[in-house]
Amino acid sequence: MQIKDKVVILTGGANGIGAALARRLVSEGARVIIGDIDRKAGQELITELNQNNKVNAIFIFCDVTNFDHLSQLFDTAQNTFGGVDIVFNNAGIGQENEFYDQTNRWIKIIDVNLNAVIKGTQLGIQYLKKRGGGVIINTASMSAFYPVSYSPIYSTTKRAVVGFTQSLRDLKDTDKIRVNAVAPSYFESNLTQELLKSKEYGQAAKNFGFVPIDDVIAAFIRIIQDDKLAGDTIAVTTRYKSKIISKSSL
């Protein structure tokens, strides 16, 4: 699929990978509905993206655990741009030792990282069918394949995202909808900057190294453009920029 003139839903789009994706997509002629809980960053981003009185991007406050908020992204795309072609279920959160801190923070991690991906995919299928097909891309993580002891819930959600994505492989044949995922290693983001303050996370990041965010964005773009990819996950690490993981894990 080409990117020019396509309409994109992008959750977690105000910072990090999401913001970088939004810039790349708009630069290639797409129109983007950005959902995020960071109002300030979201508004600043669309001011940057909407130049010369042209509406290339719309920001909507969106807590992805609120399914009414998610639905609003799709309704806005339909009403403003006539439909949806590409969906990025990108929003995600994490916390060190979330399983051991005796709070219910881990439930929120599952809600954001997994349940919202499932609901976003359901909505995506509903709207993409109206266009005769399209692309859904879920943000996973290399922690899906190399679980980390200090964030077991986070690793679980990302492993589940990979399995969920693989399970939807046949949508390519039945509805012309390709569902894929990107699993990056450590990269610069607000989340990693916060977690780097911890000793365990910092050491793990040092061991694995950081991947350039441009490599991560390139993996997302590859999935859009390569019509053969369906149910696949692209791993992005310092060892290989773009490795396709299909039915089996590493």
Rank of each mutant, 00 (worst) to 15 (best):
Met1Asn: 09
Met1Lys: 09
Arg159Leu: 14
Thr47Ser: 15
Thr139Phe: 00
Lys108Ala: 09
Asp111Glu: 15
Thr121Met: 10
Asn52Lys: 13
Asn138Leu: 11
Asp227Met: 12
Ile177Val: 13
Pro184Ala: 07
Thr139His: 11
Gln2His: 08
Thr156His: 10
Ile223Val: 14
Arg239Asp: 10
Leu196Pro: 00
Asp227Ser: 15
Gly35Leu: 06
Ile34Asp: 08
Gln51Phe: 01
Val112Pro: 03
Asn207Gln: 15
Val162Ala: 10
Asn190Ala: 14
Arg239Leu: 13
Phe164Gly: 06
Asn90His: 09
Gly94His: 01
Asn66Ala: 04
Ile213Phe: 01
Ser155Gly: 12
Ala57Asp: 01
Phe187Met: 14
Val84Leu: 09
Asp36Phe: 02
Ile177Leu: 09
Gly209Ala: 05
Ile234Thr: 04
Gln225Lys: 15
Phe81Thr: 07
Lys40Ala: 15
Lys199Ser: 04
Lys158Tyr: 08
Lys228Gln: 15
Lys54Met: 04
Gly29His: 12
Tyr127Arg: 06
Gly83Ala: 10
Arg24Asn: 13
Lys243Ile: 02
Lys172Gln: 14
Arg31Val: 11
Leu191Val: 02
Asn115Trp: 09
Met142Phe: 01
Leu45Asp: 06
Ile17Ala: 08
Tyr127Ala: 02
Leu128Gly: 06
Ala41Gly: 02
Gly12Asp: 05
Arg23Pro: 08
Gly83His: 11
Thr165Tyr: 07
Ser249Pro: 00
Asp75Leu: 08
Gly94Trp: 02
Gln166Tyr: 04
Ala160His: 07
Glu28Gln: 15
